[in-house]
């Protein structure tokens, strides 16, 4: 399958400052790529290069197989770009704003009202159709900008910090919206400097620092790579002696690196397990055979925050 977005060795320098370097990535239809990095890591520059706004100093990138540097105009109909900071025009209504961008893509004139209705429905702005753009709240303006990105039904969405500056409710709304768009088969790049924001709905992530993509790939692969042990959380019935017995049993297990009693949840033991899934099943079976009063046995959620810190601090040292 042809990658929808493909970048090879993208590099952008401003004078002696290297903003982005050696940026290589392939994304396929349906991929939602979480692009994480601290402020000033070059995320916006990278996204702008893919959005045909900045000419890369060297390297190449294609969107839907079309070269971004050589044919920027041909690439533009395939992308919807949402900048991290954007302005709206005064004295213009929501539908007129969308009509303007719709007209820019030059579809048949009769189809424009339909398209506007569709994107307003998708972004849940239907009741604001005739409101003035400048009267919308920040969250609504973000959604309007996303609606603007959708008027031409692009295959690729480049969303630069779409959830920044939003209240939790609006943040959840926009996350849901992005997940829904990903399910429609669009290739999406979402950047953020806040990791948990992306963890739920991205299937690929990349961590960038100082212009370099430190790691990128499937969420699971990355976590596996950086965290060779599985975190198991094993809970027993509310009984201190049961916990002590469990701790003793586990301490002797050859595949367990470290056992600690969890401080957050009562009667729970945190286990760093080096084995694979089969060995994990064997462990569970043996614990039941030894009649431990188990109430739960679960692999803890992959801790992306941990991964992030590990990768980025590695760079600083």
């Amino acid at each position: 399958m042809q990658p929808m977005i493909s970048a090879e060795n993208l590099r952008k320098t401003y004078g002696t400052l290297v903003a982005v370097e050696g940026w290589t990535l392939d994304l396929y239809p349906g991929d939602i790529f979480g692009f994480i990095g601290p402020n000033g890591a070059g995320k916006t520059t990278t996204i702008k290069m893919l959005a045909t706004l900045i000419q890369p100093t060297s390297g190449s990138a294609t969107v839907n197989g079309i070269d971004v540097v050589r044919f920027p105009r041909e690439v533009r109909p395939y992308i919807g770009y949402m900048p991290d900071a954007f302005g709206v025009y005064d004295d213009i209504k929501v539908w007129e704003y969308l009509d303007f961008f719709c007209a820019a893509y030059d579809p048949p004139k009769e189809s424009r009202p339909e398209i506007i209705e569709r994107v307003l429905t998708v972004t849940d702005l239907m009741e604001k159709r005739d409101a003035y753009v400048q009267t919308l709240s920040r969250g609504m303006q973000q959604r309007l900008c996303l609606a603007k990105c959708l008027v031409h039904d692009p295959k690729v969405l480049l969303l630069d910090e779409p959830a920044s500056g939003l209240d939790p409710r609006a943040r959840i709304d926009i996350k849901k919206l992005i997940a829904r768009l990903g399910a429609l088969g669009k290739t999406i790049i979402v950047s953020s400097h806040i990791l948990p924001e992306l963890a739920d709905f991205c299937n690929k992530i990349g961590i960038q620092e100082r212009g370099k993509l430190l790691v990128s790939g499937d969420v699971e692969t990355i976590v596996r790579q950086l965290q060779p042990t599985r975190q198991l959380m094993i809970s027993v019935r509310n009984d201190d002696s049961a916990v002590t017995r469990l701790l003793e049993t586990l301490r002797d297990h050859p595949l367990i690196e470290k056992v600690t009693r969890d401080t957050d949840t009562p009667y729970t033991v945190r286990v760093a397990f080096t084995g694979n899934v089969e060995q994990q099943a064997i462990l569970l079976r043996s614990l039941i055979a030894e009649e431990h009063p188990l109430t739960s046995f679960a692999e803890s959620a992959m801790d992306l925050e941990d991964v992030f810190l590990r990768v980025t601090t590695g760079k600083v040292h």
Binding site: K48, A51, T52, L53, R73, R76, P77, I79, Y81, P83, A85, F86, G87, V88, Y89, F101, A104, Y105, D106, C145, K148
Partner: peptide, 10 residues
């Protein structure tokens, strides 16, 4: 900051 939005259209 609305110029970039214009430029990314065709």
């Amino acid at each position: 900051q609305s110029f970039d939005l214009l430029v990314t259209t065709p």
